[in-house]
């Protein structure tokens, strides 16, 4: 150790480098994995459309005693393909909102409209009910309610609730800056490595040591919580009542956690390699490190 200043400065630079590496990893994962393509692929691979259909069937069946409309009136016109389209539209719209935009969602289902109309007409005919304006309003209300329920159940990532309460606009501020954060943190990491190099000019190989230590610690900091979350199956303990929302959230969180864990393992491995290289190189330099 030539002087205390270079050591303390290297420690501080290494601490900052740890945060920059973590920020780089998180922002890269956020940039590459938090998008509509990934979310839709999770929804497809987890067969979320089938879960939505099953929950819709259960809901309409439960409601049938109060509404008098049998679940089949709705469910004969709703299939996985239709629901899958709505789920995808909801995801697309959620990410549009995150980017500051908005797009309309097409819920229309001619078969569903016809099924509801047929049921009301048959019922009115069976009791000789006059099909007046009030009748038309009731049919319209039943259709609107059906689409509202389908829309709610298909919003498996709860973008609607998040938007309604102004949460999405807050998250949007961060999400739209992910590329800037990613570039900034990678650039800051490079700058910090250069600073470490300048601080250890008398023994340039020591830069490998400090960079390696930072990378190793960043890896461990990322690895420890993610390994815990995955080993304890933490996300399964979430108390989300609707199965399609539970599956969507837990699958996405598991995917992100696994990605972060692998990236952390990579960072830790890179750190170990750098430290080993430093140990191998160091004896060749006569000057002491740091």
């Amino acid at each position: 150790m030539k002087n205390a200043f270079s050591y303390i400065a290297s420690v501080i630079a290494s601490v900052l480098l740890v945060f920059c590496i973590l920020a780089s990893v998180i922002s890269v994962i956020g940039y590459t994995s938090v998008n509509e393509k990934k979310f839709k692929s999770i929804a497809a691979s987890e067969h979320i459309d089938e879960k939505v259909c099953s929950e819709l069937g259960r809901y309409f069946k439960e409601r049938s005693s109060a509404s008098g409309i049998p679940a089949e009136v709705y469910m004969n016109a709703i299939d996985s393909e239709y629901v899958s389209g709505i789920v995808d539209q909801k995801i697309d719209n959620g990410f549009h909102c995150l980017r500051g935009g908005n797009q309309s969602i097409d819920l229309s289902n001619a078969e569903l409209d016809a099924s509801i109309e047929r049921f009301f007409n048959d019922y009115a005919d069976s009791i000789n009910y006059e099909k007046d304006e009030k009748f038309a309003k009731k049919v319209d209300a039943a259709k609107k309610n059906a689409y509202r329920v389908i829309s709610e159940f298909s919003d498996v990532y709860k973008f609607g609730a998040l938007e309604e309460h102004g949460v999405l606009s807050k998250v949007s501020k961060l999400y739209t800056k992910l590329d800037v954060i990613m570039t900034g943190s990678v650039a800051a990491s490079v700058v910090l490595v250069i600073i470490l190099l300048l601080l250890n000019l008398s023994s340039k190989s020591a830069t490998l040591y400090w960079t390696g230590v930072s990378s190793l610690i960043a890896g461990i900091i990322g690895l420890a919580p993610t390994a815990y979350l995955l080993a304890t199956d933490y996300f399964s303990s979430f108390s989300i009542k609707q199965p399609q929302i539970f599956t969507a959230y837990t699958s996405t969180l598991t995917m992100l956690t696994k990605t972060f864990m692998f990236a952390s393992v990579g960072a830790a491995a890179a750190g170990i390699v750098l430290i080993i290289v430093y140990i191998i190189i160091k004896p060749k330099n006569k000057a002491s490190a740091a």
């Binding site: 290297s10 420690v11 040591y209």
Partner: peptide, 14 residues
């Protein structure tokens, strides 16, 4: 100091 550095850095970061 080299052995202590990772622990110091880890403690500070955590």
């Amino acid at each position: 100091p080299h052995l202590a550095a990772p622990f110091i850095i880890a403690a500070l970061c955590i």
